[in-house]
């Protein structure tokens, strides 16, 4: 869980860096983003990374499901009365729920853009690249569904934030790197990473909805 989880954190950084281009507006921004999208879907090195990412997502999800199943089996008889908030945070106990929300989001998100880019018939921009920029903008500014998608994306990013708040620092414990000294460092980096990355991702659809 920890190895694939941390790899997916790296993916988030790359994905966010690219998507921040959506904050740009105008003809030039569209051309730049579409050229970037073409590069990301055709470059061989990026392709290897993307297959690694697909694998990590699947492995992380399947491993997670197996972990939940074996951990549930370790306590066949539940307590009649339990007070878990006295000793642990809600998100740390519900990583499976949060992960499921994220997995559903990934499926929806990929069908929204990844599938359209790879298999859909898209108009091309003036440089001859598939015009993914316009697809993204019109998706979030759609009269009937735009707001619903914006809210769903923000909700999913909130779930991801809580998932990362627990997952990031915990990965280092699983790797055996947590000590009395390093624990605070991993926690602080993890909190900063989770909040900054999630808010930045969530800001993209909100910004598009409000400005276009």
């Amino acid at each position: 869980m920890s190895a694939t989880g941390l790899f997916l954190c790296l993916f988030l950084v790359g994905h966010l860096a690219g998507n921040l281009q959506l904050f740009l507006t105008g003809e030039e921004a569209a051309l730049q983003f579409n050229a970037y999208a073409k590069f990301m879907t055709t470059n061989p090195a990026v392709k290897i990374l993307s297959y690694l990412t697909y694998f990590s997502i699947l492995f992380h999800a399947i491993d997670g499901i197996m972990l939940v199943a074996s951990n549930k089996a370790a306590r066949p008889q539940k307590y009649a009365y339990s007070n878990p908030s006295a000793n642990s945070k809600w998100n740390s106990r519900n990583m499976g729920v949060l992960g499921t929300i994220i997995l559903v989001f990934i499926a929806v998100h990929m069908s929204n853009f990844w599938y359209v880019m790879h298999f859909g018939s898209l108009p091309v921009d003036s440089a001859g690249n598939k015009d993914l920029y316009t697809v993204v903008i019109s998706f979030f500014t759609d009269d009937s569904m735009g707001l619903i998608f914006v809210l769903f994306y923000v909700f999913a990013m909130a779930a991801m934030c809580f998932h990362l708040l627990h997952g990031f620092k915990s990965a280092f414990s699983s790797f055996g790197l947590r000590t009395a000294k390093t624990k605070v460092i991993f926690e602080k980096i993890g909190y900063a990473f989770s909040i900054v990355v999630s808010i930045a991702f969530a800001a993209i659809p909100v910004y598009i909805y409000l400005t276009h």
Partner: peptide
Amino acid sequence: EGFGACTVTGACEAE
């Protein structure tokens, strides 16, 4: 023995 795995919730340390 059939114990579960650690998911670092910290409940053990707290209790």
